[in-house]
């Protein structure tokens, strides 16, 4: 049961949030120019790292805003949270 710091609301219980997978997977600007496998890579393939993971969460039962979390997927330790559009924080796993 994590404690997550929502960049807008502060520290809250994990039960208020929903995880939505890897962050920084930008939608291609010109999908029509991509090959089948480039498009497939965007839609389905993820890095799924064991260790530091940049991921998206949403404060479902709070401000309902999306933000990014940097978490170690082995220890579940949360290093940082930040708003969409902000730079990835430097993390030393």
């Amino acid at each position: 049961m994590l404690i997550i710091t929502c960049p807008w609301c502060g520290q809250r219980d994990q039960s208020e949030f929903t995880a939505h997978g890897e962050a920084h997977v930008a939608r291609p600007e010109h999908p029509e120019q991509l090959t089948e496998s480039q498009w497939g890579d965007y839609v389905f393939f993820r890095s799924n790292p064991k260790g530091v993971h940049h991921e998206r969460w949403v404060h479902t039962h709070g401000c309902r805003r999306w933000f990014n979390v940097v978490r170690d997927t082995v220890t579940d330790h949360i290093f940082a949270t930040y708003r969409p559009g902000e730079r990835k924080p430097e993390i030393k796993g």
Binding site: L2, G21, E55
Partner: peptide, 13 residues
Amino acid sequence: DGYNSYSQRGGFD
């Protein structure tokens, strides 16, 4: 649990 993890443990919720 709803988030990626390799910790082989989950939440009580």
